[in-house]
Design a protein around this nucleic acid. Structure first.
Lengths: 141, 141
DNA sequence: ATTTTGTCTAGTGAGTTGCTCAAGTTTTTG
DNA sequence: CAAAAACTTGAGCAACTCACTAGACAAAAT
């Protein structure tokens, strides 16, 4: 029941990018050094965030990455879903990636005790993470 | 961010055991068949729950497993922690298995933004699962 | 043109997950 | 007492995931 390093690194990288939001771009090695993240691994993370539309990048000599949305518009939930997949603790209660469980005898949706309990957990997690913006995140430092 | 099959199977097995609580014992193959769980795998799970003090077992011809505590005393949180480890989404916010993060630059505890956010998530999860008893679980069927 | 950056794809070692197998040990019952 | 029925223990294994590495390539600036 853990988040991956990917999410953790991703959030820490975004923290750096929040600080220069509106100003200059940050290069991968700058972020990597400040946040103590292996630079090639960080790159994959930044690319994923870019493909998801959170970051812009410029190649070449004065290149680097920058936030493309304002920190108020980005939630921790978005970031974690991009890097780690759905928040739901079992896939039959996921709202973003629902899959019915093959082997469960309580196949019918409304009567599964597991779904009831796990649904509550899912909602609680999503409620926090989907309302926690990067700006609030960065300021809680 | 998922729970393992182990937890899922474990909870479903306990559901069966709740129904015969106070009455007869259930054999592994009975539970396995009703809940559609590979029997040898289920066994490992039942053993873990037994070692943790939730189940009793009897060997031999009329043997089987039974709940040793009442369904009101067992919470989903307990079960999941036994089978899946700590609930916390990152280990630096775990109350049952705290470990400080080695590489995080915000090493000092009160000022880490990640800890703040993840701590809230941990509390929300624990709040639900540590108050969700097996009896409530079984009755929500 | 060369250097400096990001982009993309693939690979890899360690660990985990989900499950199986085989050889026990204990208890009941015929 | 013997045999069958159950749980017990421990090892093993294929597939997958995680965290990370490597290398070839593309674009931008000087």
């Amino acid at each position: 029941m853990k988040f991956s390093k990917k999410s953790e690194y991703g959030l820490r990288a975004l923290l750096e990018l929040c600080e220069t939001y509106g100003g200059r771009v940050l290069q991968r090695h700058e972020i990597a050094e400040r946040q103590n993240i292996p630079v090639e691994f960080l790159e994959q993370i930044l690319l994923a965030l870019k493909r998801a539309g959170l970051l812009a990048s410029r190649r070449g000599v004065r290149g680097g990455y920058s936030l493309i949305k304002s920190p108020e518009e980005i939630t921790l939930g978005q970031v974690i879903r991009i890097l780690d997949g759905p928040l739901a603790p079992i896939s039959c209660v996921s709202k973003t990636a629902y899959q019915k469980c093959a082997d469960c005898p309580y196949a019918a949706k409304p009567s599964c005790p597991l779904q009831q309990a796990m649904g509550e957990v899912r909602d609680a997690i999503a409620n926090i993470l989907d309302h926690y913006t990067l700006s609030r995140f960065a300021h809680s430092k």
